[in-house]
């Protein structure tokens, strides 16, 4: 059975932070200077998927643009990005002053509201073997 996404609930969470997301999307110039401030990007063969800007554009950026009207599969993809590809160490920085960790945390909140999260106890392989996934 296909899981139903509660778009209204997502939208209400997004609306609380609408200004922040608008500001973030407005000022990001895709310079990729944030890439090296992420230790995962540096330690995993500089795979672009670990770039902080890439993570926020493909998670919270997508949710904002679609106003929360996303499919369950899309949320599943976002789960990989915000729970697996980011450990929320808050060490990333942006030349334009975007608060990247806050955006990732917001994306996690949206996903949790839909019952989507990482069960680290049940899926330990996901973190432990991620080096070999690349």
């Amino acid at each position: 059975m296909e899981r139903v996404v509660n778009s209204k609930e997502i939208k209400s969470i997004l609306d609380e932070h609408k200004d922040k997301m608008k500001l973030m999307l407005k000022v990001c110039v895709r310079c990729t200077f944030c890439a090296e401030t992420c230790f995962l990007y540096r330690s995993r063969e500089q795979n672009p998927k670990y770039m902080p800007s890439m993570k926020i554009i493909n998670s919270i950026g997508k949710l904002y643009k679609k106003k929360g009207k996303v499919k369950f599969e899309e949320l599943e993809k976002m789960r990989e990005i915000v729970f697996h590809d980011c450990v929320l160490c808050t060490r990333c920085s942006c030349p334009m002053g975007i608060n990247i960790p806050e955006m990732i945390a917001l994306a996690r909140r949206v996903l949790r509201s839909q019952g989507i999260y990482y069960s680290y106890d049940k899926e330990p392989h996901s973190i432990a073997t991620s080096n070999t996934e690349i």
Binding site: V27, P95, I98
Partner: peptide, 21 residues
């Protein structure tokens, strides 16, 4: 367009409330 970053570059890091800015 994004060319407007010429303005944001000067304002963003100064007014953005963030521990690292």
């Amino acid at each position: 367009t994004k060319l407007v970053h010429m303005v944001f570059f000067f304002f963003g890091p100064l007014i953005s409330i963030h521990k690292q800015t």
